[in-house]
Design a protein around this nucleic acid. Structure first.
Lengths: 208, 208
DNA sequence: TGGTGTGAATGCCTTCACAGCG
DNA sequence: CGCTGTGAAGGCATTCACACCA
């Protein structure tokens, strides 16, 4: 188990998992071929991806969905709940509070923080908004490892700093800004306009 | 100009653009080296990326920010405004309506649709919510090429179909579901829990 | 027979290193 | 001298093709 695993492989595992959740209700096993038609990657790729992590499949039959699902969840580390701290209770933050997909994938928004004194103390979607002063204590007490940042660009670095200083190990940022983190902290960014820019490039340059 | 351009290159262009917007206020030129420190890719990569599209830089000086910015915008196709149709006026949809980054990058939410009769006719954040019945007419009239889907998973395929049938050429979907589009239509997906799953994998498997 | 797991081959992207220009 | 643009080399990731297993 000492081979390097492509990071592209990891990102596909989540997608297989989604498909398996649906398939599980209908059938017991699935072949790499039929799974490939659902998720859109080649069958060879799916087999190779799964083989990195051990022997999941049965020759002649395919993969037993339930056990494959559990295997993937264990690999991804979502076989147990993760507590998440959310910083920024604006529109996007509230959208994430309302987003059902999180809980399904074992991500629990454990605490929500905002800088705005107007918002602190209020309740949005069953989450009480807390002051930034309480962030260090709560992150430590609840052993929160993941932070989600949904503040305006100008505030992004401050929010990230507060999280990192309190011991968070991974951050997902939605701010369209470059932020810096120490090397041992993992930072992922989702930038909504970048997604659209990819589309406009496709439309102007044409398919190729 | 007949070489193939890596799609990874295209996705980085947007990031350069962000950095240039900030830099433009302070300096006139920037070298690939200093830009690399801001965006986090190597200097060689930046030079190679830009070289795919022509001679932007000046040896000994670097890149003139204003003209490089314009060049990238032209390449990405965001030198003019894009009209976008938004389907789904739930929390996430409203977050996108409020998101200032869109307008800055020349994406204008031109029409917002929802299936829920309760919402139709109401105004959210200066956008009047329209019935799905009006979608085909408006998409055609306004020549909308890009659709954004922020409906629940069960409705995602319906929303996508409505957009595709009305002539939309590219779609950005936020629904955590596999949806099908005809091959000439470009589909990008953003899945919020997949982003978090990447982080939990990092935390459980450790750095490598 | 049907379908996995996997070396080997291919293709794509990144990094290196340096010629050449301002 | 500093910095770009770019062939060449190297490193990842995907696809192919087939031995082997239920």
């Amino acid at each position: 188990m000492n081979v390097k695993i492509p990071k592209t492989t990891v990102s596909r595992l989540s997608i297989y998992l989604r498909a398996l959740n649906r398939l599980e209700e209908e059938v017991e096993t699935v072949s790499s071929r039929t799974l490939s038609e659902i998720v859109g990657f080649t069958a060879a790729q799916i087999r190779k991806d799964l083989a990195y992590f051990g022997q999941f499949g049965v020759p002649g039959r395919g993969y037993y969905i339930t056990s494959l699902k559990e295997g993937i969840m264990r690999i991804l580390g979502i076989n147990k709940d993760w507590s998440v701290a959310l910083v920024g209770a604006g529109h996007l933050g509230r959208a994430l509070m309302a987003y059902k997909g999180f809980k399904q994938q074992h991500f629990i928004i454990s605490a929500v923080f905002d800088k705005d004194p107007e918002k602190v103390g209020k309740n949005y979607l069953n989450h009480k908004i807390l002051s930034m002063d309480e962030l260090p204590r709560l992150v430590r007490e609840r052993k929160i490892k993941i932070g989600v940042v949904t503040v305006p660009s100008e505030e992004a670095q401050n929010a990230v700093n507060a999280l990192v200083n309190s011991g968070v190990k991974a951050i997902l940022s939605f701010a369209p800004a470059t932020v810096n983190v120490p090397p041992q902290v993992k930072l992922n960014r989702v930038d909504l306009s970048i997604e659209l820019e990819g589309l406009s490039y496709f439309l102007t340059q044409g398919k190729k």
